[in-house]
Nucleic acid binder design. Structure first.
Length: 110
DNA sequence: CGTCTGACGCACG
DNA sequence: GCGTGCGCCAGAC
């Protein structure tokens, strides 16, 4: 873990997100030790699009549950469709009852 | 080395 | 509830 780049750690956590669950940039940042580095998480995810191994970036949203990176996901509805296919309710580019689907690594990976 | 830029988050008004 | 501003850290120029 420590030998890996900040980005790779982000990828690992994101891959650990269970099917039908979502997490937030802030939660990941907090888990990595930099609670106020949420921007780095989003940036890392953007870079993740070029990674060989698939990273379920669609399961990562901001604190409000909004699909902020949908335009970077290769399409406008792709991200939403993926979430919907996992049983997650998405209304107006925002996750409905996201607290119910929220998967906080800080809570789960104690 | 100085500056800008982010898929964010939070404090303020 | 919404718009604005600032902090945060790492990478690109």
């Amino acid at each position: 873990m420590d030998n890996k780049d900040f980005f790779e750690r982000v990828y690992e956590v994101v891959r650990l997100v269970p099917y039908g669950r979502v997490t937030t940039y802030g939660a990941i940042a907090r888990f990595l030790g930099s609670a106020r580095s949420a921007r780095m998480v989003g940036w890392a995810l953007n870079k993740s699009l070029c990674q060989k191994e698939y990273v379920p970036a669609h399961r990562v949203v901001n604190r409000n549950g909004i699909l902020t990176g949908k335009y970077y996901f290769g399409g406008s509805k792709v991200m939403e469709e993926l979430l919907l296919s996992e049983g997650i309710r998405v209304v107006d580019d925002q996750i409905k009852d996201m607290e119910k689907y929220l998967w906080d690594p800080y809570e789960e990976l104690v």
